[in-house]
Nucleic acid binder design. Structure first.
Lengths: 202, 202, 202, 202
DNA sequence: GATGAATGAGGCTTCATTCAT
DNA sequence: AATGAATGAAGCCTCATTCAT
């Protein structure tokens, strides 16, 4: 009945400010001072909640990826495989659009991954969970007769690559973005390619 | 017939050393001293050839992307559209595998792009040239009857995203990579999807 | 009633240390490290109080000239023109003797002036105020009949040049200095030359 | 009958270029590279003619002061003391106006003097020779009855200070310069003050 | 003599982190 | 818990000087 949430809330505030600041200035460029200013606290306070800049970055990236990982549950929901994929992709595209300004953090994370084990692990875990969920869904579709008997691992990887790539392109060339449109088009393309032709069974 | 190549060669040596060093340590982490040591010259010499660390990074990224841009000419060569795409993708996958250890530089570049106009421009230019060449090739294929009348801009974007995404995933999870295998599989998948069914006209 | 003086005091300490250090080693030769050591703080602390070495130098020169400019008020005090001039020169000579060891800073400032607009402005402002005050005093003396109807602007410039020159010579050749003696002698010489001969009006 | 003058000429060229360059950029700011470029030779060549930057500066200042010292012979020429003083001051003012753009070097030299024994010696020597010549001339004037029996050492110092001061003021505030006009006015002022009143002997 | 590429010591400045209050 | 002044290691860059050609 004490208030552990007081500091929990402060932690969240700092994390939010750090996310905004690091996204705007870059992981390497943003200074702890900048984060402190954005959070409305002093530099010293940052160190009461996070051991170091690295720890703050790690926590921040974890928080950034959490909703994306959580959205994977949509792939194990009810409905046809196609429904699930569509639902998941819609939700994810919405999440990504919500990330908007924070998108550059994702690239900072990718750049960091090969040289920071914690970050690499974090991202690898996400990608594995992502891949596994896609494979399960695709196999469900194949088993149910929705999809042709494709190489599910291969198609899963292809779908992941597709969306990562779209995200990346959107970041470099935001005008040509239309991330949501492109994303849906890409899914449709893949579904068209793996869907079992309708009148085929006749 | 004098020796303008003296500097040219030294420039190339420094660029090579810088590439290796920045790839290994990261654009932000590597120090000019590290580059100098790798190049076997003194710190001061670096500044004889490049005005600043930023200039060195810019030159290095330009050099990194040049062969990738150059490979685009394969898309405008002879043969069917499918041949050209296959040839180009093979060449590019080979290039990327050759990049191997330097691949993290690409991600550093992506992370830098939103905050460094020179880098953003460099990458945007490459992506535009890439997209235009793909569109040309796909339209050729559609005109010749190889491909179904697909939305070429959309498919081109999809192909680009696909390969960028594969590259990205390969970096985070190098073991599951098999970049070349995955890449060819992805191309085959797309080609299968857009190829005009053989006996269809009958 | 908080402690805005904490920084104010530290600022003053640093300024004092910088003055001593720059005077001893020269504006160009002294390192920020030297100043820090003299102030008993770390290098980083210097930058908490002054944006750069240049800013520190500018602040220091401003502080150096302030008392000299302030002494000009003596020229507008009570008494005959001759009293005022004598009083002012005495006070200024005392100030300059107090500057003693810091005198080389004045020459550094003169050397800097043509190439540093802030410094040039600072000194030009002082010289203009100086000249104007002298002219006012001389004109008062002419109006009151103390002085012959001389060209006051010219005599003012001459007085200024005289004292600047004495200062300069004292710096190069400190032994022959006797700045105070020479200074008083110079003033007497000028006063003798412009004073209206006593019984002349008879 | 060889050509020792070849290198003598080259030495002079370098000295001229150095003078212009150091005057323009400042003794501390100008780089050996700048001097080399101005002289139209390579950096290495500079070191064939001068052992170091310091040596170059010393030679340059010596050359700068030489004509001023030489002009002192005019004080020992023919004519009345007043003639000689007038002639000398005219010649010197012309020299100084010729120095124009190089005038800031004089202040660099004054700033350097307290911390560079060679420079201090050079300037002290000049000032002593200057003072001695003035004293001689004034004493000649007193002896001949041109001047009142003034304290010649004191008046000599006063004259020197006067002209040094005028020079200094001209540098800080070039617009109010009119160095030549002010200089002549100053001399006239002093002569008027020490000249024996014409009909006085009667 | 002349060159200019190469050197490396050294200066200015930044910033993650600490700690006394 | 919170602060923010203080620290000092470390990075980028400059430039006087050297030396092989």
């Amino acid at each position: 009945m004490s208030r552990p949430d007081v500091s929990a809330q402060r932690t969240a505030e700092i994390l939010a400010a750090a996310t905004e600041t690091f996204a705007r200035l870059g992981l390497g460029t943003a200074r702890m001072e900048d984060v402190a200013a954005a959070a409305g606290v002093s530099k010293g306070t940052l160190y009461l909640y996070f051991k170091s800049k690295d720890a703050l970055v790690a926590a921040l990236l974890q928080a950034l990826f959490a909703p994306l990982t959580e959205a994977l549950t949509l792939l194990d929901g009810a409905g046809t495989a196609e429904d699930r994929l569509t639902r998941y992709i819609s939700a994810t595209l919405a999440l990504l659009e919500g990330l908007q300004s924070r998108i550059s953090l994702v690239f900072d994370a990718f750049a960091l991954a090969p040289r920071n084990e914690a970050v690499r692990q974090l991202m690898a875990d996400h990608l594995h969970a992502y891949h596994a969920a896609l494979v399960r869904t695709l196999e469900h579709g194949v088993a149910s007769g929705e999809f042709r008997p494709v190489d599910t691992a291969q198609v899963a990887a292809l779908l992941m690559a597709l969306f990562d790539g779209l995200l990346q392109m959107a970041a470099v060339d935001p005008e040509a973005a239309a991330l949501r449109t492109r994303g849906r088009g890409a899914l449709r393309f893949v579904l068209d390619a793996i869907r079992r032709p309708p009148g085929r069974s006749a």
